[in-house]
């Protein structure tokens, strides 16, 4: 099922050399997208965090130990999107016009098949209703609907920001967006500017150029999901973490 190529193809490049593992992307994402908070947020198997940090270490003993991070949004797989084809009530779809994989919370029945099918652990189930201590419902943004328990959710590439940017453009009598006009909340907030977001189909966009960087790679590329999230790292041991390799197979760049 090769996707029909649409006009736009939004994607992301995350420079892991710049990434400090600070987690601001995760927090900004949560704040932007009305993520629920459960009573025990340390329950990492059940908390929701669309942009999740994975910590990796080079495994070397002290004092040669190094840690690095993979911030992991939804990959918005472009090819045979594993979650989309399995969803029984059509609650998740890829918009071929921009490559964004949607999740419709009010359609979702909570069967969690998509979670099983996603190798990136990018999908999250609402095991609880969100817990909002008194007063905190006031910070919720009307741009993203608040999810009820029992449904699956995931990173939407801040789709509402695309809508926001479009409305702004329309108000200025433009139909097309300029590079950088639509970026995700994590891209915007990253203090190290490690994240670049834009249209991969636009050869002049920053993101398209970075995605062709010699040190650019994607997660689990050999599975063939063609993620639209790229990473850059100058460190071989980090790049080796991105996919499964047979012994002696990995080629340092």
């Amino acid at each position: 099922m090769k996707a029909t190529e649409g006009k736009y193809k939004y994607g992301m490049v995350i420079n892991l050399d710049k990434c400090t593992g600070c987690g601001t992307c995760t927090v900004a994402c949560a704040a932007e997208n009305n993520l629920s908070v459960i009573r025990d947020e340390t329950d990492k198997q059940r908390t929701i965090s669309w942009m999740q940090l994975f910590k990796v270490t080079n495994g070397k003993p002290f004092p040669d130990t190094e840690v690095s991070y993979f911030p992991r949004p939804c990959m918005h797989c472009h090819n045979h999107t594993p979650c989309v084809s399995v969803c029984p009530p059509t609650a998740t779809k890829m918009d071929y016009n921009n490559g964004i994989v949607s999740q419709i919370y009010t359609r979702c029945i909570g069967c969690r098949y998509c979670q099983a099918a996603c190798p990136y652990q990018a999908r999250y189930f609402n095991w609880w209703d969100g817990h909002f201590p008194k007063g905190t419902e006031r910070y919720l943004s009307p741009e993203v609907s608040v999810r009820m328990r029992g449904v699956v959710e995931k990173c939407s590439f801040c789709h509402h920001r695309l809508m926001r940017a479009k409305e702004q453009a329309y108000a200025e009598d433009r139909r097309e967006l300029e590079d950088g006009e639509y970026i995700t909340a994590c891209t915007e907030v990253c203090p190290a500017e490690a994240i670049t977001f834009g249209d991969l189909n636009d050869p002049d966009s920053k993101v398209a150029k970075l995605s062709k960087h010699p040190q650019a790679f994607r997660l689990l590329e050999r599975i063939g999901t063609e993620p639209k999230v790229y990473y850059i790292s100058s460190k071989d041991w980090v790049r080796r973490m991105a996919d499964n390799y047979h012994p002696n197979e990995f080629q340092p760049v």
């Binding site: 600070c22 987690g23 995760t26 927090v27 949560a30 704040a31 993520l35 908070v37 947020e41 340390t42 329950d43 990492k44 908390t47 929701i48 965090s49 940090l53 910590k55």
Partner: peptide
Amino acid sequence: NPPFLTKTLFD
């Protein structure tokens, strides 16, 4: 500590 920050912690 705002609870959102706990999302970024490891267990």
